[in-house]
Design a binder for these strands. Structure first.
Lengths: 223, 223
DNA sequence: GCTAAAGTAAACGTCAGATGAATTTGCAGG
DNA sequence: CCTGCAAATTCATCTGACGTTTACTTTAGC
């Protein structure tokens, strides 16, 4: 056998969940019942549940019960960026990764998104603009904007991956450069327009330009 | 306050680890001592440790102690792909993602890799070829090959991300198509050559072609 | 003096019971 | 029908005991 009892129990529980075709939000039996069903003690059940909860597969609510997570299982800091010593290089690397990924993602979104699906994107763009107007930190909203484009790409793997990358970026900085902010507004608009027009080529270029702005800002900021 | 005591304890412990500049392999105080230091009971300490262990930040060895993981914290199945119902679409999405990512990663590797650093890559290529020669399942070795290219890209975020993607692919299939296998050998060689020659453009194209082969195979296989 | 087996200590693993805290549910009163 | 309180449900935490694994020490044999 491989792994501790707790791990085995977690694996068994996960298998049962998959087998049972449980949907997000569905309830899992309570700890006492899992004890019997998995044939282990209570501490072990708790560790098993915590294991799955840490992967955002389960969501435990004290007093209420344990449920299949609606947020569909993307773990927090899945790549262990907290441990990276050189945060400066990490930020550069993340931006380089985004320059590879996001233009193509925007192009996919432009290919596939129906006009009706773009509502939320426009809303998020507007939120970013409002926050910039009020000179607030808009990194969180900006991340949501980029994540929504990933959702529109129709690619499940991309939809799960991008939040992790964009969230990691917001950790570092409260760098609000007002000169850049105005450019952000403009490029966001271009991106939205390209996606709504189903113009992949334009979407690719607009996103590429948008991210290059950020890179230039970062270079400037730390020279 | 946010989260349960266990989560807070995990956060505190992680903070202490970061603060203390612990290196991979270093030892963490034993449970009893953590009890005092974190001011919580033993169950809570255990849950906190398990939380960090599930993120591959800590590695717990019964009888020996708890250590900072040498494998530098990439969680298992960080995107919850186990829960995805439509595995067919997931495989397509992953390949689409790889087509976006890997050509550019190969180009980066070609830009930056020194000839001396390519040794391991050649070794891995050779392993794949041998397994193909013996008509074995070479998906695992192929994943290692692609992961090594990500390492050569010099981008830490990419280096952490790609293993997750390539590993997910190996889960599905034991699809060994011998006609394709020969093409794999050839395209792998081209990719290696381009990287060694520091020819990013050629590396990009070779990798793109290589992955398109896989996509064609997948399309053929499930029509 | 060296080696290998046996023994001992250290550290994590599991179980069990008791108590606390949060949520939901049911019921009484308006 | 709504409100508010009380009880039941469920997870959270603490504590103590015992098991299991690993690492180290001792010792018997050569």
């Amino acid at each position: 056998m491989t792994g501790s009892k707790a791990e085995q129990a977690a694996e068994a529980l996960l298998g049962w969940i998959v087998e049972e075709r449980l949907l997000p939000g569905d309830r899992i039996p309570r700890e006492e019942e899992l004890e019997e069903r998995l044939g282990v003690g209570r501490s072990t059940v708790r560790e098993a549940v915590k294991l799955l909860a840490s992967r955002n597969i389960l969501e435990v609510r004290q007093g209420a019960g344990t449920f299949l997570s609606p947020k569909q299982g993307v773990a927090e800091d899945p790549f262990g960026f907290v441990l990276v010593q050189d945060k400066r290089k990490l930020a550069e690397d993340l931006l380089e990764l985004r320059l590879i990924l996001e233009p193509s993602i925007a192009a996919l979104a432009a290919e596939r998104a129906l006009p009706a699906e773009c509502k939320k994107l426009l809303l998020l763009r507007q939120q970013v603009e409002e926050q910039i107007g009020r000179k607030e930190n808009h990194l969180q909203a900006d991340a949501a904007f980029h994540t929504e484009i990933a959702r529109l790409s129709g690619n499940g793997a991309v939809r799960r991956l991008l939040p992790v990358i964009t969230q990691s970026v917001t950790l570092d900085g409260e760098l609000t450069d007002m000169a850049l902010a105005q450019e952000t507004v403009e490029t966001h608009r271009e991106i939205c327009q390209a996606i709504q027009e189903n113009n992949p080529r334009k979407a690719w270029q607009a996103m590429y330009y948008h991210l290059q702005l950020n890179r230039r800002r970062m270079d400037r900021q730390l020279t």
